[in-house]
Amino acid sequence: MNFKKNEKGLTLIEVLISIVILSMVLLTTMSFFPQMGFVNKQNQDKTQAINTAKEVLINWQESNEVKTFLAIDNQTTGFTPAYVNELVNYSFFSYDKFPGYYYFETTRDNYNVHIKIKKSPNTSSSVSYVHSMVVQLLNKRGNIIAETFGYVKR
Rank of each mutant, 00 (worst) to 15 (best):
M1I: 08
N2Q: 05
K5T: 10
G9Q: 04
L12W: 03
E14L: 08
L16S: 08
L16C: 07
L16V: 14
L16M: 14
L16H: 01
I17W: 03
I17Q: 06
L22W: 05
M24H: 02
M24Y: 07
M24K: 03
V25K: 08
V25F: 12
V25Q: 04
L26C: 14
L27K: 11
L27V: 11
L27C: 13
S31W: 02
P34S: 06
Q35H: 09
M36I: 15
M36S: 14
G37K: 12
G37W: 03
F38C: 05
K41V: 11
Q44V: 10
A49Q: 09
A53N: 05
K54L: 11
K54G: 05
V56K: 08
V56I: 15
N59K: 15
N59I: 10
W60E: 11
E65T: 13
V66A: 13
T68N: 13
L70P: 08
L70C: 09
A71Q: 11
G78L: 07
F79R: 04
F79K: 07
A82Y: 13
N85S: 10
E86M: 08
L87V: 13
N89M: 11
N89S: 14
S91W: 03
S91Y: 02
F93V: 13
P99G: 05
G100H: 04
G100L: 07
Y101P: 05
Y102M: 08
Y102R: 06
Y103N: 09
E105R: 09
T106M: 14
R108W: 12
N110K: 11
N112W: 06
H114C: 10
H114Q: 15
I115N: 02
K116N: 11
K118R: 12
K118C: 01
K119P: 06
K119H: 04
N122L: 12
T123R: 09
S124Q: 07
S124W: 00
S128H: 02
Y129V: 06
V130L: 10
H131S: 07
M133N: 00
M133Q: 01
M133E: 00
V134L: 09
V135A: 00
V135Y: 00
L137W: 00
L138P: 00
K140R: 01
G142V: 04
N143Y: 01
N143T: 02
I144M: 01
I145N: 00
I145Q: 00
A146D: 00
A146Y: 00
Y151F: 04
Y151R: 01
V152W: 00
V152M: 00
K153Y: 01
K153H: 01
K153Q: 04
R154P: 06
R154Y: 01
